[in-house]
Every structure is written in structure tokens, then in C-alpha cells.
Write a protein that binds this DNA or RNA. Structure first.
Length: 119
RNA sequence: CCAGUCGGCCGGACAGCCGCCGUCGAAAGAUGGAGGAAAGUCCGGGCUCCACGGAGAAACGGCGCCGGAUAACGUCCGGCGGGGGCGACCCCAGGGAAAGCGCCACAGAAAGCAAACCGCUUUUCGCCAAGGAUUCUCCUUGGCUAGGAGUAAGGGUGAAAGGGUGCGGUAAGAGCGCACCGCGUUGGCGGUAACGUCGGCGGCACGGCAAGCCCCGCCGGGAGCAAAACCGAAUAGGGACGACAGGAGCAAUCCACCCCUUCUCCGGGGCGUCGUCCGGGUUGGUUGCACGAGGCCUCCAGCAAUGGAGGUCCCAGAUGAAUGGCUGUCACGCGCCGCAAGGCGCCAUACAGAACCCGGCUUACAGGCCGACUGGCGCU
RNA sequence: UGGGGCGUCGCCAAGUGGUAAGGCAGCGGAUUUUGAUUCCGCCAUCCGUAGGUUCGAAUCCUGCCGCCCCAG
């Protein structure tokens, strides 16, 4: 499972946008629990609006997000979750290690917030 | 060496590790993987479906010097004419204004039928003044008013004023006459042509704007790969209310009305129609889809655009949409530090990412390379 | 992908070949003890931008830039 599943439908994005949000310098992470079953893989989606820049900039931000997700999805993401990364312009210029740190931090904060209402 | 003009080209290179998409393969793996503009979507085609039939007319849109190239073009090439530049060279939607309509503000006497006005010249009558001859009166000169005739030189303007400059001519003037320039017309010569050139004739009339309407010539059916075809799934040709429902026939049905086919005629097709409300379903896959007006090399024809022949190559195919992340070495540029060697930095580089495919146009672009040419300066 | 429209002062806007109305806001002044109201004056000249046509362009034509809307 090197490449995790992707969100593809507009309705899935809208549903994720209603979940928890965690803002970072380079992106905003939106997350929603899709199902309680442990067998369901986590899924990711990316959003970069046209306001951010031209197609080269948007594609590059999306590709950097994909690389981050590829490296960390298996270990750090929770099964049954849908994540959406909304890119900002800083995601283009930030160092890759910084981007990675922000991603892990956002995951951690979302998960700890998720745990509280459950228990 | 400096300044400049034109044309063409490149637009990081080589590796390693981890990944992504396609193709081949049972697998391991092998192999291919963004551009000169892929962009804007401004033109022209291919392709697909619809109308697809016949005839005609009109409307609308586009184009517009000439010749050539091309599948076609609003593109390209070579000329012509006009304008700009010392020059290399650059720019131009560049048909028609004696078919018609319209416009030409302000200023100006007048802005489009060419005359009127102010003036200028001359003449007649009358009046006034001066001078001369002198009996009334007459003559000369000057001025004023009115009338007649001749004029278009001049009239602060204006973008533009019924050719321009000069000489002659005249009462004053005037193409009235002459020379040159311009214009019109006609003939010869050169050129496929646009056009050029030479000569004759005409004394000159014919202002500008058609990127105002328009006229002439040429071209154009509509929509677009979310086109379209196939497979599969699902739902079924729904229900309620209101309005309008002509004619023939016992009836099935047919015709009319209406709708579609740009318009009209013939022809063809659809059918109860329209409005409001309620309810239900599909939003998967494959093909289209990458061998093409294709790339590269050589030769030939042509000034060139381009065309022909031979050889050789197969070179992205995604669909929430594949090229990314990290690292090393080197080239180039810029900045900082340093006397220098060198070091450090710029996520180590502009504009920018294929979406059915081609030919163009337009726009964006860090830095660099090559060639041809022009004007200066210096040296030999 | 195809089609339509817009861009004029800080804001809303008129002007469709002859030198850019009007309103709101702002600034200055008058009236008023002060304020409000009222009145007067000022406020574009790079009409989104670059060219062209014309004697003359916000207006006509062409290319760009930005924004909005519609259909699938």
C-alpha cells in the first residue's frame, strides 16, 4: 500500500470540509472519520485553488503533498479517516523537512482532538 | 572597439536512492514519459454527429494592391505603391468617393451645387473741395453716396479654401500665355500582374472621411471529443390539476393547426399541446486516442515560401488528471567576503505543464550561442 | 469547450466622433452660539492597456490585461 487511496468526488471533499481543521503555515488540514472499521485504509485528497497561482504552481504543490503522504501515510495516518490538504502558496517555497514537520504536527493535533469526544 | 539592424538556435548536463503513469512480460524486470510557446483560444483544416433532398432569394459574418505557396487560412514567400530612418532596415485593413445617402465641430467671407460678401479696377449720375480758362459755363485732379461692367490676386481663419512656384501680361486681375512640378486623359515600350517609364493632348474640372452607411469581388450549413459509438447497471415510457382541442369517416385512421428543418416553395419528420406541482433514474467501463498534411539525414527543382525523390526512426497518453522528493559532481550567471587563490549563498535558472490531432497568429520569457549586414572611430 | 457582457473621480454612474454630465463621499467658505440642514466653490485630462484610422478618439478598428454572467 505504497500509494494510499485518494478522494475523488466533490461530495467527499465537502464532507471532509465539515470535519476538524488544523491550520499550518503551508496548508490547512481537514479531517473526518469515514468509518469505525479498522480495515478501512485512510484516504487523502488535495485542494489547491486557482487563486494560489497558475497550473505549474498548483501542480507542484500537489506533487509535494503526494510525496509527504506517500512517506508517512502508512505509519502515521489513522485507518477509516479522510484527510484533505488545502494548499497555500508557502507550500511551494518551504523546505521539504519543514513541510514534513508541519504535516506530522497537524496529524497529531487532529488525532488528539479526535480522541477526546470518543472517550 | 563602440552603436545598431535582421535571421536562426539553445533554454542546464551527467549520475545515485526512493516513488508515479503507459507499453511489453507469468514474474523478475525491460522500456518510454511535457513545450517553444504545451499558454491565450484569435483564425484555418482534419475527424465525429446533426441538417443530409431539389431550386431560388435574401439576410448575416469575414476577407480585400499584384503574383505565387498551401489541405486551407485573416498565414507565409517574392514583388509594387506610400511613409519613416544617414544607413542596414522597419511600418502600412493598401478595392471603389464622376451609384447614392450622411458627416466635416470651433474659427472663418465662404466647408462643397460654386456663388454671394468685404475689397480691387473702370465707368455713369449727383454732391463736396482745390486749381485753370472764364460771362453763364466748361475742363483737370481728389474724395463721398448710388448704379452698371470687369474681376477672383488679397480677406487675422482652419486639418482642409475650386492646382503650386516663377516670369510675362493687364485698367485691375485671372492658366490669359510660357517654364517646371502636380492632376486628368491617351498612345508606345518594359512587366504574367500590381505598376513603372517615355511622348502627345487637356489649361485644370474631380476636397476629405468608406476601421460611417454603402457598392463591387471572393469565401462561409450548424455544432463540437463533455463530439460520437459500443458494453453494462438502473429506472421505466410516470402521476395530479388547469387551459385549449378544427374537419372527414361507423371505426381504425387521415388531413389541417402547431413544432423542427435559418427564410420561401415543393418535399421530409414529430405529435394531443402548453403551464404548474409531485415522484423516479443515470452520472461506470471500452473505443474514439496517437503512424501523423509526422520527425531526422542526403540529393534535386525554385530568389524564396515550398514541392519532389531516397534512406532511416516510432517518439507522452493522464482522466480529482502521471514527470516528484532527497543527494553528489560539473558548466553558466548574479550577489557577498577576500589583495589574490578561493569560499559561501541564490529550495543552484526565465516564461511556463500535454488533455482529439495538425497548420498559423498573438502574447510571456533569466541567461546564452551562431551567422549576415549597416553607421562611426582607430590601426595596417 | 462554446457564447455574451463590462472596465470612466475614493463609490454609484451619464456620455456612442468635436476637448468628460450628475449624485454620494472628501476639502474650503458662508449662514448658525455650536451642530444638523441649506447655499457657494474645489475635485478626471494616463476614460483598463498598447497601437492604428481620422484634422480630431472615452466613443471607430485590432492585439493584450482584468473581472462578471450563461450553456453543456
Amino acid at each position: 500500500m505504497a500509494c494510499p487511496e485518494r478522494l475523488k468526488k466533490r461530495a467527499e471533499f465537502l464532507a471532509a470540509a465539515k470535519g476538524r481543521r488544523q491550520h499550518q503555515r503551508c496548508f490547512t488540514m481537514q479531517a473526518r472519520r469515514r468509518s469505525e472499521a479498522q480495515g478501512d485504509a485512510p484516504r487523502f485528497g488535495f485542494t489547491v485553488t486557482k487563486k494560489t497561482g497558475n497550473s505549474v504552481i498548483r501542480n507542484r504543490i500537489r506533487r509535494r503533498f503526494r510525496e509527504i503522504v506517500r512517506l508517512h501515510a502508512a505509519g502515521d495516518a489513522r485507518p477509516g479517516m479522510d484527510y484533505v490538504l488545502v494548499g497555500r502558496i508557502d507550500a511551494l517555497t518551504a523546505g521539504f523537512d519543514d513541510l514534513r514537520r508541519e504535516f506530522l504536527s497537524a496529524l497529531h493535533k487532529i488525532h488528539s482532538a479526535e480522541r477526546k469526544p470518543d472517550r
